[in-house]
């Protein structure tokens, strides 16, 4: 059903194969950067690893670590970390239709939501629509499973290696993440997605200047809705 190199593999294996390679490598390296930051900020090995497994969203983890290092109050840390990860609302909303049919029990959808992050999201948005609904959950499980394994190992490795890495190495590892995702989204397919990406690229920094707290939500609301409306107008006229 899902041929690869002339052989047919199941959806779990396909997910594992798709994630093993660049997504897992980049994630591992990014989390090495995070693990090293976490140690400098005063986290312990196990709190660093737990934060990767529990929060599972790098911008929110970085916000947490940086405010913790500054000695910020607990409530401020939690609020800032959560705000930095607000993108999970539209991300999970947008993939749920791909899972609803295959996962009639809501509790499994809550499990899917916990393992959502940029890599599995980009993969399932790209490949999911072309699969049978029943293949999507196992594919996602295979893909996300590799991602979280790589991330947990990377966090631990980064924590242990923190003293041994120069600042430039850590800086380069942190830079790896935006570079990789720039290319993942430069590769977006479909008119609506491409327009939304372009609008977001422009709006993200502008709205951040306007309001660091609400900039990201505004970007989604304004640039995303604008791209949707432009796509709908084009669809009505030409498609």
């Amino acid at each position: 059903m899902l041929p690869i190199n002339g052989k047919t593999v199941g959806p779990i294996a396909r997910g594992v194969i798709d994630a093993t390679g660049m997504p897992a490598l980049v994630l591992f390296a990014s989390m090495v950067g995070y693990g090293s930051m976490a140690r400098e900020a005063g986290l312990t090995l196990w709190t660093a690893i737990a934060s990767t497994g529990l929060t599972w969203g790098l911008p929110g983890q970085i916000a947490m670590v940086e405010l913790y290092a500054l000695g910020a109050p607990m409530l401020a840390i939690v609020a800032a970390s959560s705000a930095a990860n607000a993108r999970f609302l539209p991300m999970v909303l947008s993939v749920m239709p791909l899972f609803n049919e295959a996962l009639p029990r809501k509790r499994w959808r809550y499990v899917v939501a916990q393992f959502m992050s940029l890599n599995p999201w980009a993969a399932i948005m790209r490949r999911g629509p072309g699969m049978t609904p029943a293949d999507r959950p196992p594919y996602y499980a295979g893909f996300a499973g590799v991602c979280i394994t790589a991330a947990l190992l990377g966090t631990g490795a980064g924590f242990i290696l923190a003293g041994a890495m120069s600042r430039n190495v850590t800086l380069t590892l942190v830079f790896l993440n935006p570079v990789f995702f720039t290319l993942v989204f430069a590769d977006a397919r479909g008119r609506a997605a491409i327009m939304a990406v372009l609008a977001g690229v422009v709006a993200g920094p502008l709205f951040h200047l306007l309001s660091p707290d609400w900039g990201l939500l505004l970007t989604g609301a304004v640039a995303g809705t604008g791209a949707y409306m432009a796509d709908r107008a084009l669809r009505r006229r030409y498609d």
């Binding site: 911008p59 239709p97 989204f185 997605a193 939304a196 990406v197 422009v202 951040h208 990201l216």
Partner: peptide, 29 residues
């Protein structure tokens, strides 16, 4: 679904573009 996807793509692209252009913390160095 189309609307949610557009919002998600815009937010994620905006986040990455903000990380490159106006980063906080280590990358700002």
């Amino acid at each position: 679904f189309r609307l949610f996807s557009c919002i998600a793509y815009a937010m994620v692209a905006g986040l990455i573009s903000r990380m490159v252009i106006l980063p906080e913390g280590l990358l700002a160095e």
